[in-house]
Amino acid sequence: MTSVAVRPIKVTRAALWRMRLQLSWRGLKTNWALFTENPIGLIGLGIIVFFGLLALLHPILMHTVWSPNIYDPVSGFDMQVPMSPSPPSPRHLLGTDPLGRDVLSQLMYSTRYEFGLGILSALITVIIATTVGAFSAYYGGIIDMFFMRLADLVIMVPLIPILIVLAAFNPVGMIELGIVIGLLSGFGGTTIVIKSQGLAVKVKPYIEAARIAGGGDFHIIFSHMVPNLMPLSLLYMMFVVTSAIFSEAVLSFFGLTQIKMSWGLMINTTQVFGYLLRFDTWYLLIPASLAITLLCAAFYFVGRALDEVVNPRLRRR
């Protein structure tokens, strides 16, 4: 046996952290390499970045070239436009809406909130689904039964009708909407998916090894189960974003939200003023619907590409 007594290098605390950072960086790099192999993921990411830039650009434009009186997405009005809605022109690249407001400005302004909504609901979903899923899978029995029946219930009552009912009682803004979508999705379908993965993790020998090491239930759940469920949660985050943006659009279209401006509301305005099914006023309908479609698709694409990173089974050699 070769056991040459090399003097162990002293691993200082600082070095430890540096190593950990390096490791995460390396992990990110390999995952990125896998991600980029799938063109769909890159397309999705490209679209997301594009919309991100749009969102960032809006306040800058408002402070520089766009005068708030004319271009404000909610209260702007251009005196120089004789008739509203008006088709695209150099002053209003995407035209103006029936109330004389700039469509492009509305589109860009809304983007920020769409992102906010998506991220809020996705975060809530992931935190709830991962915790509940991990606990359900680990403890089983009555805890599991309770959460799974709850999930069945939540799934059976679809999101949109629930929101319609909710909206009838209480005005629903972006934040409320994000929380409701996050809660429903977190206690609903996502939990079931995460829990079934949790069952697979729970029976891994390393869980028993952790127990042999002396780890208690919480140690096992948070140091072993949750980290191994995280990639899947991340994946579902993307799908939740898609569904959140889409739900918002539907609700706003029916005028059920108390949101000042959003893509859904843009379509709603078009509909209220009777321009919905007209070809000549395409500029009222197309930008918002295209934006909804594209951004939803983009998050879905990224999710699919992440799926390949997260599920080695799907990886090509």
Binding site: K204, Y206, E208, A209, A210, G214, G215, G216, H219, N228
Partner: peptide
């Protein structure tokens, strides 16, 4: 354990794996 591939958490480094009993104790 029998299976050297399954008895270690794939997301922990060797350092964390070996130190785990010391840490939790």
């Amino acid at each position: 354990f029998q299976d050297p591939y399954e008895s270690m958490n794939p997301r922990l480094t060797i350092n964390d794996t070996v130190a785990e009993p010391l840490n939790v104790q």
